[in-house]
């Protein structure tokens, strides 16, 4: 894989420096057979430093996951060396089973099969709260 450019695949760009690995795990990129490059601490005009992930395959990315981790991330779809699409990232209203509620008094701590659902309660501060116990999701 040429990590400067890819022929067909995805470039996940403008990831806050240091968060690339978290994203890599959240998107389960380790399970792929195709080449994946995680590039850390790339210098950026806008951000100072950033991380980039390149995937040698056109994946159906879970935008909910990306938006939850950081809505400033951009996703470019590459076909035949050209950017053919940009996916627009939004802060999801609700995320299911992406993060776990850590409150030991929450019903999710005793009922294993319950989905862990967090709702966006304040878009300004990107605050998510567990729908059951209203605990804040730990800041990422």
């Amino acid at each position: 894989m040429n990590i400067d450019g890819i022929t067909n695949g995805l470039v996940i760009d403008h990831i806050e420096a240091g968060k690339g690995m978290e994203l890599y795990n959240a998107l389960h990129l380790g399970d792929l057979n195709s080449s994946v490059a995680l590039i850390k601490n790339v210098s950026s005009h806008k951000m100072g430093k950033k991380d980039i992930i390149k995937v040698d395959e056109v994946l159906d990315v879970d935008l909910e996951v990306l938006g939850f981790i950081d809505p400033n991330i951009t996703v470019n779809i590459i076909k035949d060396n050209l950017i053919v699409g940009k996916k627009h990232i939004e802060l999801p209203k609700k995320v299911t089973n992406l993060i776990k509620c850590k409150n030991p008094r929450c019903i999710t701590s005793t009922e294993q099969e319950l989905p862990h659902i967090f709702k966006l309660t304040d878009p300004k501060t990107r605050t998510y709260r567990c729908i059951y116990c209203e605990s804040k999701a730990k800041e990422n």
Binding site: N103, R105, C106, I107, T108, S109, C130, Y132, E134
Partner: peptide, 10 residues
């Protein structure tokens, strides 16, 4: 009534 938070919502 339930000792765990959110049980009535469930």
């Amino acid at each position: 009534r339930h000792p765990k938070e959110g049980a009535p919502l469930v």
